[in-house]
Simulated scan of single mutants.
Amino acid sequence: MTTQQDGRDARVAVLVDCDNVQPAILDHALRFVAQFGRVVVRRGYGNSGALGGSRWQEALVQQAFTPCLQYQYASGKNTADIALALDALELLFDETVDTFCLVTSDSDFAYLCRKLRERGAIMCIVGESKTPQALRNASDHFSEWEPLPDVMQAEITKPANENGLVAKSADSVRPPAKQRPMFVVKAVALLASDTPEGKVTLSALGNYLRRTDPGFTPDAYGYSGLLEMLRTYDLLQLTQEPGSHWTVKLHLDNIQRMPVNPLTGKPNAS
């Protein structure tokens, strides 16, 4: 799935319209674009009303985004959108990146998407359910983010914090208890969705997990390696292919047996 040029990973810019989306969308956006390449630019655009609040400040700092504050020169004028568009064109012309991810549901960006694609860039959009069809169709890849139900969010974040990292006590000497964070299953679902056989290699999965969290390591969850970790998941199936390499895919039967689909948070059909 990873886009490569000249034998190297694609360089990705994630540009967020903070006036239009919620801070909780950032985790989803970064996990989505990690399949396409290495994120080298992270910027969040907004006016003082959005970026001045604690919610966006905390989210941008936690995910290492550069805040791009744009004051409104006149009432009703959104200068942040113009700044985002100009910066995107500059990044393309300077050849800083070759893949863009706009995090917005604002159809005003459809024209920018078309211009960037005409110049050869790969365009990704991450938006909410309100995203108009015109913006969805202006991208090469669209991902819709939906807030998880409170009960599902509590279950997913129970073994780890928002970054997927296990909290460690400074004086703790005991190895961590074995845990199975849900983001691993979601990573397999994302990477395998576009493959003919619905599976992904172990190495591709490991690379993706390290892109989304540079500090990811199986031993933080009580395992000596990724293969040992994946063997404990009831929702995943492992296969040793010819040549001794391993692949993993979703265990669809086990997922369907659950009353609530763990990937969507919606009830399964009985």
Rank of each mutant, 00 (worst) to 15 (best):
T96V: 11
T104C: 13
S105L: 13
S107V: 04
L92H: 09
F109K: 07
F100S: 02
L91E: 00
L92P: 10
F109A: 07
A110S: 15
C113Y: 06
I122P: 01
K115A: 05
F93V: 14
L102E: 05
Y111G: 02
E118Q: 07
T96A: 06
V103H: 01
I122Q: 13
S107P: 13
T99P: 01
T96K: 05
T96M: 02
A121P: 08
V97W: 00
R114Q: 02
K115D: 05
I122N: 08
I122V: 13
F93I: 12
E118R: 08
K115L: 11
A121I: 04
R119G: 08
F109R: 06
D108A: 12
R114L: 02
C101K: 01
T104Y: 14
F93A: 14
C113A: 08
R119E: 14
S105W: 06
T96G: 04
L91A: 14
A110R: 02
T96S: 03
L91M: 15
C113L: 06
D94H: 11
E90N: 15
C113H: 03
E118I: 07
G120T: 11
D108L: 04
T104S: 15
L112Y: 05
M123S: 07
V97T: 05
A121K: 04
C101D: 03
R119Y: 11
K115Q: 15
M123K: 05
L91G: 04
L102W: 07
L91K: 02
K115V: 09
Y111F: 15
F100Y: 04
D98N: 08
R117D: 00
D108F: 08
L116Y: 09
L102A: 12
L112T: 01
L89T: 00
K115F: 02
L92M: 15
G120H: 12
R117Y: 05
F109M: 14
V103A: 05
F93C: 11
D98F: 01
K115T: 12
F109W: 10
L91N: 04
F100C: 01
R117G: 03
F100L: 07
L92K: 14
T99K: 10
E95D: 15
E90W: 12
Y111N: 03
R119F: 06
A121H: 03
L102G: 13
E95A: 15
L89H: 09
R117C: 08
E90Q: 15
F109G: 04
L112P: 00
D106F: 10
S105H: 09
E95P: 01
D98H: 02
C113P: 00
L89A: 04
T104R: 12
R119P: 07
F100I: 07
Y111W: 12
G120M: 06
E118L: 09
V103F: 07
L89N: 02
L92G: 09
C113K: 07
L89C: 12
L102N: 03
R119I: 08
E90P: 10
S107Y: 05
M123T: 00
F93D: 13
S105E: 12
F100V: 00
